[in-house]
């Protein structure tokens, strides 16, 4: 089940005097098994694109193909939203129920599943986000720590058993350990999902976890790359983003003549490069 987007354009306020394309002629394809990153500076249209995927925004022009959903016709939104789960930025702000279990069960309940199935899904997804069901299920979501709240919110989306999971800046506002935990969590979810699409401003995370990156700028798609291709030169810096820290350090080391080429992605590769250079000298 792949996601295909062709020539997608979107304007929020069609009546406005200064029409501004939030999306302009975007075409991309997300395949099964992808951990797909969407990057681009603020206002580049990432969230707008993401909201198209589960029908929160109705398509204006272009083609969207997800599974057998025909976005040109009236689609069964419930079925689509069960298939494509979106975790929004700061998802903890959507918690509302009396207990964690009820909140996580909100999605499955809306899908009109039977209570047994709902209960099973709630248990599974609370477990899947690394929380202890017995300890946490009966608590109020508002008693939890920030990191726990975010996990509960993610569990609330997972409980709908989506095949594609879209995450809008899942690590925003967390401390370094919290960021790492969430990324490990998302990465561990990959096996049970067909594809993960992640919006991120953190290129270290993109370099470490994703296999494809779509770079966006002012509503346009600059291109879809592998992280290695994208971070090879200073492309991302021209679009207002930073290189991953290891890559940026490698560029400095290369300029200083310590290493010969900066063709690396992660820290381990950089270390290997440095060692290699030392041995040769």
């Amino acid at each position: 089940m792949s996601v295909t987007i062709e020539n997608l354009s979107y304007i929020y306020d069609k009546k406005a005097v200064f029409k501004k394309n939030a999306l302009f002629d975007v075409s991309l394809k997300v395949e099964d098994g992808d951990f797909f990153a969407l990057v681009g500076r603020t206002g580049s249209g990432k969230s707008t694109l993401a909201m198209h995927l589960n029908g929160l925004i109705r398509k204006q022009t272009g083609v969207i193909l997800i599974d057998d959903f025909d976005f040109d016709k009236k689609i069964n939104l419930k079925a689509l939203r069960a298939k494509v789960g979106i975790v929004f930025q700061y998802p903890e702000s959507q918690l509302f129920a009396d207990t964690v279990a009820l909140d996580v069960g909100f999605g499955p309940k809306n899908l009109k599943l039977d209570p047994k199935e709902i209960d099973a899904r709630v248990r599974d997804s609370i477990g899947a986000v690394g929380l202890d069901y017995d300890e946490i299920a009966g608590k109020s979501p508002f008693e939890l720590s920030g990191g726990q709240m975010r996990r509960v919110a993610i569990a609330g989306v997972l409980a709908m058993k989506p095949e594609i999971l879209v995450l809008d800046e899942p690590t925003a506002g967390l401390d370094p350990q919290g960021k790492k935990d969430i990324m490990e969590l998302v990465s561990s979810l990959r096996s049970s999902l067909k594809a993960v699409i992640m919006i991120s401003h953190n290129m270290d995370e993109v370099a470490k976890y994703c296999n494809k990156v779509a770079l966006m700028d002012e509503g346009r798609l600059v291109g879809v790359f592998t992280p290695r291709q994208l971070f090879r030169d200073d492309t991302v810096e021209r679009y207002g983003l930073l290189l991953p820290s290891a890559v940026s350090l490698a560029h400095k080391l290369k300029a200083a003549g310590v290493i010969n080429d900066a063709d690396i992605l992660g820290e381990d590769e950089l270390v290997a490069k440095i060692l290699e250079a030392k041995n040769i000298k």
């Binding site: 929160l56 998802p91 702000s93 959507q94 909100f106 999605g107 989306v157």
Partner: peptide, 10 residues
């Protein structure tokens, strides 16, 4: 934002 999030949960 909240409406969108809850809509996403059907």
């Amino acid at each position: 934002r909240i409406i969108n999030a809850q809509k996403s949960r059907c």
